[in-house]
Every structure is written in C-alpha cells, then in structure tokens.
Amino acid sequence: MVTGFQGFPKEFLRFYAELIENNNRDWFGRNKQRYKDVVVYPMCDFIEAIAPRLEAIAPTYIADPRPNGGSMFRIYRDVRFSRDPKPYKEHAACQFRHQAGRDAHAPGFYVHLALDGVRFGGGIYLPPAPILTKIRHAIDEKSADWNAIKNDPDFRKTFPDGIRGDGLKRAPKGFPIDHPEIEDLRRKTLFVMKPLLTVEGITKPDFIDEVEDAFQKATPFMRFLTNAVDLPF
C-alpha cells in the first residue's frame, strides 16, 4: 500500500540516545521543541497512516493521531511510587485500543520503539479481575480454538516467543493445576510481539508494512481476546 509515511527520521534515534545520557528536566526543557519535531509529530504521522490499515483489519480498534489524548503514550514517567527517579520514558510507544476501552486495560494493538529493541503486536495488559476471569473461562471452554491460534504456522513465525505475560505461581481459583492450558490460564497479562531485526528499520518506508503484517497475523488472537470480554471485533 502506498503511504505518505516514509519512516521515522534518523533524528528520532539520536534524540533517544541523548535522552538516555541526559534524562533530567533541564536537558529535556532545552530539547522539548526538538522532541515534538522528531518524535511527536512523526509518531502522529505514523498513527494517521496506520489508521486506515487498522480499520481494515479490526474496525472496532481506534488509531487516534492527536499528539495529546490520542494513541501515543506520554513521555513523562510517574515517579511517585518508583525507585527510578528518571522523569522521562526512554522509548516511544502507541496503543490502538478497542473503541469501548477508556484505558490501557482494554485489548489493544501496540507499537514500542526503543534503542534496545523495537516490537509490535497486541494483547491485554493487567485487566481487572472480572475481565481476566472471562478470558480464562474462554480459554478453558474454547481450548481447541485457542490452540489452533497458538499453533498456526504463520502466527508462530511472526511471534517467535508465542503468547507471553507474567502469571501466577499457582493455578487460578477454579482451575486445576494439571489443566492442559494452565500456563496461559495463570497469566495476568497476555500479549504477542514481533521484534524488528534492527532498530534502524523504523527509518525505512516499509516499517509501516511490517507493523500492518504483524497486526494481521495477530488478528485471530486479538479476536479471541475481544470476544472473550464480550466486545465486538
């Protein structure tokens, strides 16, 4: 597909290399306009370009290109309860959430851009207990569908690490420890991610095509999660 988005500028990578060495408010204050020019606006362009592609894949998921309040995550870290005093995130990211979701606990497609790795895919992050319970029961009751998704050759090739996410040490309430899907039933977060071979790949015109392809390959997984929490895909 032809797109006006030709990749992130190389200055995007230079900005984060310098931020890692100067993660303080004085430096960021002097470079705030630069941040907008080489990170925020290019990310908005990317989101705007991926929007029609995402709509074709998953019409109930939203790509909002607004620089504030849209799909892009803010750079500011919440350090109130953190041992890490750094005020700024050393990566850029965006999430395309379900239209019914008002926060990060809804299912969503995700793109993560950092010097130590670029990845994109989808899933659901630490959903509240009632939502997680619905997902667990769906995995239990539709285990054949769940395994068909996990074992699909294209799915496994695209997401070499499979379905991931931190989990409980024990079986969740109501499920036996010897359940055949116990590994996934114990998860508190469920996601799949495709790693980009090189960070510099984000500066290439075909980066958006790779993201689109990963979103397409994640569709059965995302549809399962979406339907499990009683939302339309």
Rank of each mutant, 00 (worst) to 15 (best):
E55W: 08
M1K: 11
P195I: 11
L185K: 01
V118S: 12
L231H: 09
F224A: 07
H91F: 14
R170H: 14
R77E: 13
N227C: 03
I202V: 14
K86T: 13
D206H: 14
P220N: 00
N227A: 02
T226C: 03
A129D: 13
V211K: 10
A218Y: 07
P87T: 10
D166W: 01
H105I: 04
F81Y: 12
E21S: 09
F8K: 01
H112G: 04
N68R: 14
L115H: 08
G70S: 09
N22T: 03
I149M: 14
I177F: 04
A56E: 12
P67G: 09
E11G: 00
R66S: 12
L126F: 12
N23R: 06
T3I: 10
I47S: 04
G70F: 08
K173N: 08
L115Y: 02
I177E: 15
D178C: 03
H137A: 02
G167L: 07
G122N: 00
G162F: 12
F73V: 01
G123K: 02
F73S: 08
K169G: 14
Y61L: 11
H98A: 08
M43L: 12
R186D: 12
V2A: 03
E200F: 04
V199G: 02
V40C: 04
Y61S: 12
I47D: 06
F215N: 02
A17V: 00
V38K: 01
R164A: 09
K36M: 07
I57F: 07
E141W: 02
A51C: 06
R119Q: 09
P232D: 13
D45M: 06
M193S: 11
F233H: 03
F8H: 10
I47C: 04
P67C: 08
Y35C: 04
E200C: 00
N24A: 07
F191K: 01
A49R: 08
R83K: 15
G174Q: 03
L113W: 11
D230G: 06
R30L: 13
M72W: 10
K157Q: 14
R53I: 05
T133S: 13
I149N: 12
K10E: 13
L126S: 07
Q33S: 12
K157E: 15
L132Q: 09
K204D: 14
V199Y: 07
D161V: 00
D206G: 02
S71E: 14
L13E: 07
R14Y: 00
D230M: 11
K89W: 04
I177G: 09
P205M: 07
Y61Q: 13
K142M: 05
Q95M: 10
R187T: 00
V192R: 03
F46K: 08
P67T: 05
I62F: 10
K194R: 15
G7D: 01
F5R: 06
L197K: 11
G101R: 05
C94T: 15
Q33A: 11
V211C: 12
R164I: 03
A100V: 00
W27E: 11
P160H: 12
A58H: 08
N23E: 04
P195M: 10
L54W: 05
W27C: 06
Q95K: 03
F191I: 01
Y61V: 11
R223T: 14
G174L: 04
A171D: 11
D140W: 00
Y41Q: 06
T158D: 01
E11A: 15
F8Q: 06
I62K: 11
L185C: 00
G117Q: 05
T189V: 02
V40D: 04
F221S: 05
Y41R: 06
P172K: 05
